[in-house]
Design a protein around this nucleic acid. Structure first.
Length: 602
RNA sequence: CGGGAUGUGGCGCAGCUUGGUAGCGCACCUCGCUUGGGACGAGGGGGUCGCACGUUCAAAUCGUGUCAUCCCGACCA
């Protein structure tokens, strides 16, 4: 017993020493290589900054090594996420990254997911894939373990690398192929339970991004390939061009939505052409290939024209009709058609479609007439059109004074497939909508029974009857959040990490390491800060001050302490990266100030 | 999928037209000097010039093919 006790004490002692060593970081030993120039392949701020400051190293397009500084940032974000998810009642687990085809066939997504799903074969020639998201796996895990209503609700999450084989990865960590994600899945008895958990997660997310030092907007969005009904995205609003999403929002009420989901009220417009056309007749409209040319030629507002677009949705042609002054939102159209893949038809495909239907019209004169057998989806704006102008599949001709009833269309499906545009009105309060760019750092979905039903994932209720779980899923892009933080916090000198996710809190820069007093003071501060739990780097390199300052700014330490000549009067210099605030303090004052500021954030 | 461009040391690039010992800046190593915003001098290490085949006495350079990377576009009639 005594012997063991002693061994234990020795171990503790050793561990303590190791831990102290772990917190020690001298710049001369830190594995980071800053560069004088931005990487040539970087376009957006975060990619440029993270590359130049030595945070990431590209291995292949969209695939990066997270260097030690980056990894510290990512771990900090992960830990904030963990703390808030745990606090919200979720439980962490870890699922496999490589997954068998079978589960994906159960959900039907093996066929549906497309090329983004990275497929591979194992040595036995079995089909496998790299996990782009984990609904299938978690649902299979849940159905084996969650049998009774007594066990629900449950929320399970993991933090893990994901792989999505993007067509065109770009923007560094913002759109990588391999990236780190937190994904959570909730299982409830019913819709009411899901609604409650959805709110719970929304609240947790808000807290998470706040703690990361990021301002986010929660916006309504399309639910995409993951499916389900209701979903929201958390957007970091940015003035850089890295934002890949357009976000519409209202300043008068709380409405905000991704452009793929946004709706709006339209201002008044001329939608009845009776003043222009007293009868229905075919007009010669030579060379009017665009809406602009056509409305000019006929001298009518473009709101009196019905625009017909040909899309290829899941390999089949679909006609989309919309009032000509408005544009199609492809995601909405794809959803309305029940498809999973959409693109505009090529002119060759249009020609093929025309000849198939016995027409000979070029783009600019296409219309729904005589296109029976082809799926036709009309935007809601089409309902109000009267006595309008429309293509009738004859080159250089349009039908004027037309009404849909004249066209002999058998099947037409109405849906909102319109892209909201600047200047349109808030659907909730009628005030003008604004638009901005956003980086999606998190999302929450109500999945309902989309996965539990086909995968037969059910629980038994109090009466012995079985029901599929009502599910939700909740993602946060960990690596993307880090990149978004850079997009939101930088200047011409480099990154300005928010304190909570900075790789280290403080850098201490002795100006001249050959000056004994400077080194002594720097070293003492370094040790004092460390023992107070502050993460600090001592820049002990034999470099000129300029080099150290440039690196400190580029890397983005939130605080810098410079120990230079003023130490002879007893002062060190203190500088805040984010605000530029600076001042002279005694080493003791500076140490105290730093500890106070940093502890306040923790 | 279509178009354009580029592959030369860790990073950024020149050399290619007109074939003949592979170069520059940064970074790295040594010495000296310097030490408050990316100093300076001297010396040094590191590259199968993406890969394959071909032409040639000789290929980074010319030809063919291939692979990779980057950018743009993918028709809003």
């Amino acid at each position: 017993m005594e012997f063991q006790y002693n061994v234990f004490m020795i171990k503790l002692h050793v561990i303590k020493i190791i831990r102290e060593e772990l917190f020690t970081m001298k710049m001369s030993k830190l594995f980071v290589q800053t560069m004088r120039e931005y990487p040539s392949d970087a376009e957006v701020i975060s990619h440029k900054m993270l590359g130049r400051a030595g945070f990431i190293k590209k291995l292949s397009p969209g695939i990066y090594t997270y260097m030690p500084l980056m990894w510290r940032v990512l771990k900090k974000i992960e830990n904030i996420v963990r703390e808030e998810m745990d606090r919200a009642g979720a439980q962490e687990l870890l699922m496999p990254f490589v997954q068998p085809k079978e589960l994906w066939e159960e959900s039907g997504r093996w066929e549906v997911y497309g090329k983004e799903l990275m497929r591979l074969k194992d040595r036995h020639d079995r089909d496998m894939c790299l996990g782009p998201t984990h609904e299938e796996i978690i649902t299979a895990v849940a159905r084996d373990g969650l049998k009774s209503y007594k066990q629900l609700p449950v929320n399970l999450y993991q933090i893990q690398s994901k792989f999505r084989d993007e067509i065109r990865p770009r923007y560094g960590l913002l759109r990588g192929r391999e990236f780190i994600m937190k994904d959570a899945y909730s299982f409830d008895l019913d819709e009411a339970g899901l609604d409650k958990e959805y709110e719970n997660m929304a609240k947790a997310y808000k807290k998470i991004f706040e703690r990361c030092g990021l301002e986010t907007k929660m916006v309504q969005s399309d639910s995409g390939a993951i499916g389900g009904s209701v979903s929201h995205e958390f957007m970091v609003i940015t003035d850089t061009d890295a934002g890949e999403n357009d976000v519409f929002y209202c300043n008068s009420c709380d409405y905000s939505a991704n452009s793929n989901h946004a709706i709006s009220n339209l201002p008044e417009a001329v939608v009845d052409g009776r003043e222009y056309f007293s009868e229905t007749k075919i007009l010669d409209t030579p060379n009017t290939h665009s809406i602009e040319e056509l409305s000019k030629f006929l001298n009518i507002p473009d709101t009196l024209i019905l625009k017909t677009l040909v899309y290829i949705i899941d390999k089949k042609p679909v006609l989309a009709l919309i009032r000509a002054d408005k544009a199609i939102e492809e995601t909405k159209l794809m959803n309305a058609a029940g498809g999973i893949d959409i693109r505009i038809a090529s002119s060759a495909e249009i020609a093929e479609l025309m000849s198939e239907k016995g027409f000979d019209a070029v783009p600019g004169f296409i219309g729904p007439k005589g296109m029976n057998g082809i799926q036709i989806i009309a935007d809601e704006t089409v309902r109000d059109l009267k006595n309008f102008v429309v293509g009738i599949n004859q080159t250089d001709k349009h039908l004027a004074g037309a009404n849909l009833s004249d066209l002999g269309i058998e099947n037409i499906k109405y849906a909102d497939i319109r892209l909201v545009q600047r200047g349109e009105l808030c659907p909730q309060c009628g005030k003008p909508l604004y638009v901005t760019k956003g980086i999606e750092v998190g999302n929450i979905f109500k999945l309902g029974t989309k996965y539990s039903k086909p995968m037969n994932a059910v629980y038994t209720d109090i009466n012995g009857k079985t029901h599929p779980y009502v599910m939700g899923c909740y993602g946060i892009g960990i690596s993307r959040t880090a990149a978004a933080a850079v997009e939101a916090h930088y200047d011409e000198h480099g990154i300005k990490w928010p304190i909570a996710i900075a790789p280290y809190h403080v850098v201490i820069v002795p100006v001249n390491i050959n000056d004994e007093l400077q080194m002594e003071v720097a070293d003492k501060m370094y040790k004092n800060l460390q023992s107070a739990g502050i993460e600090v780097v001592l820049d002990d390199r034999n470099e000129r001050a300029g080099v150290k300052f440039k690196d400190a700014d580029l890397i983005g330490f939130p605080f810098r302490v410079t120990v230079g000549k003023t130490i002879n009067e007893g002062f060190v210099e203190y500088k805040v990266r984010e605000t530029g605030e600076q001042g002279k303090y005694t080493p003791e004052e500076a140490t105290k100030k730093l500890i106070e500021k940093i502890k306040a954030v923790k």
